[in-house]
Design a protein around this nucleic acid. Structure first.
Length: 283
DNA sequence: ACCAGCTCCTGCTTGC
DNA sequence: TGCAAGCAGGAGCTGG
């Protein structure tokens, strides 16, 4: 679900509240998400201060004063929201939590970070902060789009050996980190490139256009607070707004919004996932 | 090395 | 109306 813009929006919402705070208590309501929680997970969090809140690809990274980093992935349906205010322990101990409220992290200040994830494709784990970049979750990740790494040349280089359709290459996290199904479709439309085109056939000029399109779409989506289709909300529970600006995603049958193009948006299936594009202007 | 396909899980939408 | 199949924003694993 949440792609880079949604995760970045959650990060921006959480950072002012979490950074500098100490974790008072952690409550796990099951023993695993997509993967098991690490040994003594709650104990390794309790009493620790959160020193930074960063993002890599679609992962949130909370660096702790213990030298470990709490790694969080929202999967398809994960939500991280801030609950409660003054009455410190109330939320943590309350009954009647939702069936999918899996983890509660109560801060010394009294607020509570709640992780809810119906499909349980998300994960939480702990990784030594100085070993993050070599950890198996991170070592294969590709270019980080909002950090200036995503240049036309770098992208062309990564795509050069790939025999997959462009769309499949774009959602491959070892090429560009953080792009998922929605923003891949949007970026390809903006770059006027067909999702079916073979990745390695991209010339420098097209690769540059695609690199720029990905960066622009993601940046605009972050500005809009992400896209809310069904599950995604910001940390305060409010929705994002970028879905209203989709050019192609979930718009099969509609007229292509590109000026001067009279095409109709089509939905096809690639590698088992929906792709939306305009066959007229995307080549 | 690379790639397509399958899989985990729940809930909403669609079609009979 | 009711029920079952199909589908969903992710990504690791398998086998070719």
């Amino acid at each position: 679900m949440p792609e880079l813009p949604e995760v970045e929006t959650v990060r921006r919402g959480l950072a002012p509240v979490l950074v500098g705070q100490r974790i008072a208590e952690v409550r796990l309501r099951r023993k695993d998400l997509r993967i098991p929680f690490p040994p003594r997970f709650a104990k390794r969090l309790e009493g620790r201060r959160i020193e930074r809140l960063d993002r890599r690809a679609k992962y949130l990274l909370a660096a702790l004063d213990s030298g470990e980093t709490l790694v969080i992935h929202l999967g398809m349906s994960g939500q991280l929201t801030l609950e409660g205010g003054k009455p410190a322990r109330r939320y943590h101990e309350r009954e009647g939590l939702g069936a999918h409220d899996h983890v509660l992290i109560t801060l010394e200040g009294g607020r509570c970070l709640l992780f809810n994830d119906p499909r349980r494709f998300g994960l939480m784990t702990l990784v030594p902060t100085d070993k993050l970049s070599t950890h198996k979750l991170f070592h294969r990740l590709g270019l980080e789009p909002l950090d200036g790494e995503l240049t036309g040349a770098a992208l062309q280089d990564l795509l050069a050996k790939r025999k997959t359709p462009l769309k499949a290459a774009l959602i491959d996290q070892s090429v560009i980190a953080g792009v998922g199904n929605i923003y891949a479709c949007e970026a390809l439309h903006r770059a006027r490139l067909s999702p079916k085109r073979l990745a390695r056939t991209l010339k420098a000029e097209s690769a540059a256009r695609l690199a720029a399109a990905v960066s622009e779409v993601l940046a605009e989506a972050v500005e809009a607070g992400g896209s809310t289709l069904r599950d995604y909300v910001r940390s305060d529970g409010s929705p994002g707004y970028f879905q209203h600006r989709f050019a192609v995603y979930d718009r099969a049958g509609e007229r292509c919004p590109r000026e001067g193009c009279r095409g109709t948006i089509r939905r096809i299936v690639q590698a088992g996932r929906s792709t939306f594009y305009c066959p007229t202007c995307q080549r």
